Amino acid sequence: MTPPLPSRRGLIFGGAAVSAGALLTSCTSNESNEKGPAQAGGGAADDKPGKAVTVGFAGPQADHGWLNAINEQARARAKEYEDVTLEITEGSNDTAQQIGQIETLINKKVDVLVILPADGKALTQIGLKAMRAGIPVVNLDRVFDSQQAYRCWIGGDNYGMGLNAGRFIGERLKDKKNAKVVELAGIDNLELTRQRTEGFDDALKNYPNIKKVARQAAEFTVESGQAKMAQLLQAQSSFDALWNHDDDQGVGAERAIKQAGRDEFFMVGGAGSKHAMDAIKADNSVLKATVLYPPTMAASAIDLARALGQGKGVGGLAEHEIPASLTLYSAVVTKDNVDEYLPTGFS
Rank of each mutant, 00 (worst) to 15 (best):
K228Y: 01
K228C: 02
M229T: 14
M229P: 04
M229Y: 12
A230T: 13
A230N: 11
Q231A: 13
Q231F: 01
Q231P: 02
Q231R: 10
L232Q: 08
L232A: 06
L233I: 01
L233Q: 01
Q234A: 15
Q234T: 12
A235Y: 05
A235W: 01
A235P: 03
Q236M: 09
Q236Y: 07
S237D: 11
S237R: 10
S237E: 11
S238C: 00
S238A: 11
F239H: 02
F239Y: 01
F239T: 00
F239A: 00
D240N: 14
A241S: 03
A241G: 06
A241D: 02
L242T: 05
L242Y: 07
L242A: 07
L242F: 07
W243Q: 04
N244C: 15
N244M: 04
N244W: 05
N244T: 05
H245Y: 12
D246A: 03
D246H: 13
D247T: 04
D247E: 13
D248Y: 13
D248M: 14
D248Q: 15
G250S: 13
G250Y: 09
V251N: 12
G252W: 03
G252H: 01
A253M: 04
E254V: 06
E254S: 13
R255L: 05
R255P: 01
A256Q: 10
I257E: 03
I257T: 00
I257M: 01
I257G: 02
K258Y: 02
K258G: 10
K258T: 10
K258S: 14
Q259I: 05
Q259F: 00
Q259M: 04
G261L: 12
R262C: 00
D263R: 12
D263Y: 09
D263G: 13
E264C: 02
E264K: 07
F265Y: 10
F266D: 08
M267G: 09
V268K: 08
G269M: 00
G269P: 00
G270F: 11
G270V: 01
G270H: 07
G270T: 02
A271Q: 06
A271S: 08
A271V: 09
G272V: 03
G272W: 09
S273L: 07
S273V: 13
K274I: 08
H275S: 12
A276E: 09
A276S: 14
A276F: 11
A276V: 07
M277D: 02
D278M: 03
D278V: 05
A279H: 09
A279V: 11
A279N: 06
A279Y: 10
A279P: 00
I280T: 10
K281A: 11
A282C: 13
A282H: 10
D283G: 11
D283L: 08
D283A: 15
N284D: 15
N284W: 03
N284E: 13
N284I: 04
S285W: 06
V286Q: 13
V286H: 12
L287I: 07
L287W: 14
L287G: 06
K288H: 15
